[in-house]
Design a binder for these strands. Structure first.
Lengths: 225, 225
DNA sequence: GTCTATATCTGGATAGAC
DNA sequence: GTCTATCCAGATATAGAC
């Protein structure tokens, strides 16, 4: 109808099928990596014939790229709390909680992203040097302003982001290591997940000089088991 | 000669060849992952014919396992500083510096290990639940004793290790992300590497209530809430 | 639009000459 | 011990029936 649409408007069926395939692909790429995943695996996970996957996405690489694009959008969310007028303690706590929640609820997304970075980011390096870089610079400036105003301890604002990402995503990406040390299974039981989240939040806040004065609840401490 | 040797003693040549192959394999597995790496790649990297690799290690999986075993040994090092009589500030600072140095000097080892964890640790789960778990329990007990003695702030001692590993290894495993945000290349220039190391060390020490008397320009025990 | 059947290629592994 | 030549399983991608 409209002359504006450069691409053919996607039908309802197509959209639904693509969504099913993308979710299946995320799970399979997370488990096996890009090279280890096969189109047959993905088709089986989506309960579709192999050729249907090729019909909708063409190649395995194009499908992988589509999965990554979705994940990157997810990654750029969650920084809204970090704005000049906000309270540093509240803003950083909210950001850490958001990241821990993402790590717990979308571990496969985190793993696909991690795998891409681990192998040199061949497909999303451009996006990282574009959107991600700009976002971090903007938010780092906010943190720097807080520091200059004496509202939090001096930390390297850019590396603060690397640090928070690393601490939160480790529970998704390297879950087998965490589970092995804790002697439990993966995914982590809800109680362990809460303990992790509490730890990371308090750790970051204290490192930023934003911790509440005292009173650690004793039940959250102590050796495991 | 000796009846003690259960396995045939490795000849000089064999040992040298195996070492060459192991180093080449570490580089290739780091770049391409287990599934993405081919024996032909590894052989080319080692400047040997493909069959020689098979001759020494049998299968690609066995070679991968050998690489992982070497790396795991490297991973278990570096905790000697953490012992009851030590000064918490010194011990933790030394451990963080050791890990940052490892991340900078052996990034490929870190990446091979990360890739294995990312895909469920199929080959080293047993080792993690054995040696690694025992080591962390032992060292976490030391940290707990420091906390009980009021020598550092209360942190979850087990998760402290997850946190330190995550923060330090992120500079090896996810280098493309760091480089993209900083607008530089990978590996990171030496100056950026030092900046990262300084950040992580200060971050951890402050989170553990061990920050040096170095010029916090304001009250770190913020009154917030 | 969807699926069966198949062409084509890649890569792990080995046989056997040297 | 070392390397060339080769085998064969498994994977991507497509042709063509429905």
């Amino acid at each position: 109808m409209t002359a504006v649409a450069a691409l053919p408007p996607k039908g309802r069926i197509r959209q639904a099928q693509e969504a099913v395939i993308l979710r299946a692909a995320e799970r399979v790429f997370a488990r096996r990596g890009f090279s280890g995943a096969t189109v047959a695996d993905i088709a089986a996970e989506a309960a579709l014939p192999k050729s249907t996957v090729h019909y909708y996405f063409g190649t395995k690489e194009a499908l992988h790229r589509a999965v990554l694009d979705d994940i990157l959008a997810l990654w750029l969310e969650g920084t809204e709390a970090i704005r000049p007028e906000a309270e540093p303690h509240e803003a950083l706590a909210a950001y850490v909680r958001h990241k821990m929640q993402l790590s717990a609820e979308r571990p496969d997304a985190s793993r696909v992203f991690a795998n891409e970075l681990l192998h040199g980011a061949p497909q999303i390096d451009d996006a990282l040097r574009g959107g991600l870089r700009a976002l971090v610079h903007e938010k780092a400036a906010v943190v720097d302003a807080w520091i200059a105003a004496g509202r939090m301890a001096p930390v390297d604002s850019t590396h603060l982001f690397f640090t928070v990402w690393a601490m939160t995503q480790t529970y998704a990406d390297f879950a087998p290591q965490v589970a092995a040390v804790l002697g439990c299974h993966t995914p982590l039981p809800a109680a362990e997940q809460r303990r992790a989240s509490t730890h990371v939040e308090r750790f970051v806040l204290r490192a930023c000089g934003l911790s509440a004065p005292d009173s650690p609840p004793h039940d959250l401490q102590g050796p495991i088991r």
